[in-house]
Design a protein around this nucleic acid. Sequence first.
RNA 1: GCCAGGGUAGCCUAGGAGCGAGGCGGCAGACUGCAGAUCUGCUCUACAUGAGUGCGACUCUCAUCCCUGGCUCCA
Length: 412
Amino acid sequence: MVFVLFNTLTQRKEEFTLPAGRDVLYYTCGPTVHDYAHIGNFRTFVVQDVLKRWLEAGGHRVKHIMNITDVDEKTIERAARKKIPLASLTEKYEKVFFEDLDCLNIKRAESYPRVSDNIDKIAEMVAGLYEKGHAIRDKAGSYYFDINTFPDFGRLSGKTPHRKIRALMQREDYRAPKNFLLWKRCESDHGIKCFESQLGRGLPGWHIECASLATSFLGPTIDIHSGGLDLTFPHHENEIAEAEAYTGRRFARFWVHVEHLDVFGRKMSKSLGNFFTLRQIIKRGYDPRAIRFLYLQTHYRSKIAFDFNKLDDAQRAVFILDEVVNSLAEVEKYGANDYTDEIAKFKSGFSESMDDDLGTDRAATLFIVFLRDVNRVLVDKQLSNTAVKNIGDTINWAIDVFGLLEGCESQQ
RNA sequence: GCCAGGGUAGCCUAGGAGCGAGGCGGCAGACUGCAGAUCUGCUCUACAUGAGUGCGACUCUCAUCCCUGGCUCCA
């Protein structure tokens, strides 16, 4: 069986291969812990979780690293506004984030390195880029990546580094029109968090933290790097430039980007104010598994137009699942139907869909249909002893791939 | 402007050259103390427009119209 995955870098589906016996090196961009994450954010994390589960179901071991951004403008601003220490803000929302992950039954990564714990590594990378001539330093002591020294810049996002980039990069972070921030010098500490490092007192740029954490925890070349679609540019584009300029090696083999979840016709986002948190959804009485299932009912490269009718549908599917699982456990009278063909057909159809660029949408449909059919034959009491056992195993297999075990109770 | 993705019965979606679309909703029935869930049956029988290539297109090609999203913060 061949697993193919769409690679943003090449804009096409490619077979996912790996030298025998090696772990899959998997890096996903984690949250900035300044607030509750919303259900749009969690779509990405759930898809990434299912990707990991499918790789594992295929016999791979996956070494997964996800960063925690606990130092950046947003966290610093927010802590300052609330007049609380930065750490107490980020600790709170980091805890909340992990609770939500558990609630959604998202498997834990191998490690969740915090930016604040890895300043030295990041500073070292910046210093290295400077030595190699890929960075420029201004009079104040801030460092910027010089994209003129990286000819491949723009390849991932398909943007050419000419007029477009120039137009895009006008913020103050981009000292010269084409460059982006690596390390921001900060002198005083009045309410602002600054770190001591070999570069002096300052704060790391956003892109360099992922480039640094990914390469230092997983090595110069990772197999899969994933994030939300909106990270393609500039975040991932910049990461590639930093990492490849620094290591001289290819940074990531596969880039996997997850589409957005829309609501009221717009991308769900904090700045638009049109978001729901996981907690709000649960408070309305929904099973977290319903949200998971809702995510998986749409292919990860398509937008989901979120609405509560769809969530109701997904909730219903989860009920049917529970119903069938319970009924299977209570079967007392057996028939002669081994159900062999139906089980085999479902398993191969499900696998085939998943192998084709993680087709959870088709797999989900097949799963529902399978459950309905099983439910029907259960009523007729036709199933044999073996059938009941095999169906149970098959359902558990699908539950495991989709991660539909109950994470948290519908507590608020 | 650039890039991407769409237009499928009341709504939401899947499809792929020929074969009964699926779910929701609606209607009826079974089950049930009621309700929900579940089960059965019924309802509805669609693919933006124009042209082209096919024996044959909703499905391929080329146009056209319309819609949506992204593009220096963002999963």
